[in-house]
């Protein structure tokens, strides 16, 4: 799907909802769709929270409430200093009663937690910093 097709798809989804504003953040740009039948902006902005060399910022793959531990368990999924393998869940995003795992994109060590447990985050918001 090319960018324009994705844009049309997003606009079509938005038209079916009562959502007033949709923002999608990429690595360098912010797409802002306003549901007034006309407005769609691509805004250039500074890349937020630029990853330091040797580190990876893990972004939220969807909107949700950040959970650093599974609700049935006491221990955290990933604590600072913990070594994690690619694919291992670093955090959960809760949407209603659904939980979505945020997998580690690569092997590494958890350097920083960039969102607090219970925070509402949007698509692309930084969640966790991994380092080599």
């Amino acid at each position: 799907m090319d960018a324009l097709e994705r844009f049309r798809q997003l606009a079509a989804w938005l038209a079916d909802t009562d959502v007033a504003l949709l923002e999608l953040r990429g690595s360098q740009t912010l797409l802002r769709l306003v549901r007034d039948g006309a407005t769609g902006d691509v805004v250039q902005e500074d890349a937020p929270d630029e990853a330091r060399p040797g580190t990876t910022i893990v972004p939220a793959p969807t909107v949700g409430i950040v959970r650093h531990r599974h609700p049935l368990r006491d221990g955290p999924l990933a604590s600072v200093g913990a070594r994690v393998e690619s694919g291992e869940p670093l955090a959960l995003l809760q949407i209603g009663q659904m939980l979505l795992a945020v997998p580690a994109p690569r092997d590494g060590v958890v350097a920083r937690l960039l969102a607090n447990d219970g925070d509402a985050v949007g698509y692309g918001d930084p969640l966790i910093e991994l380092q080599d």
């Binding site: 599974h70 609700p71 049935l72 009663q97 659904m98 939980l99 795992a101 997998p103």
Partner: peptide, 12 residues
């Protein structure tokens, strides 16, 4: 996809 879960009803 893997890693899709539910909050158990015992908690909800």
């Amino acid at each position: 996809a893997t890693g899709i879960g539910l909050v158990p009803p015992a908690l909800v």
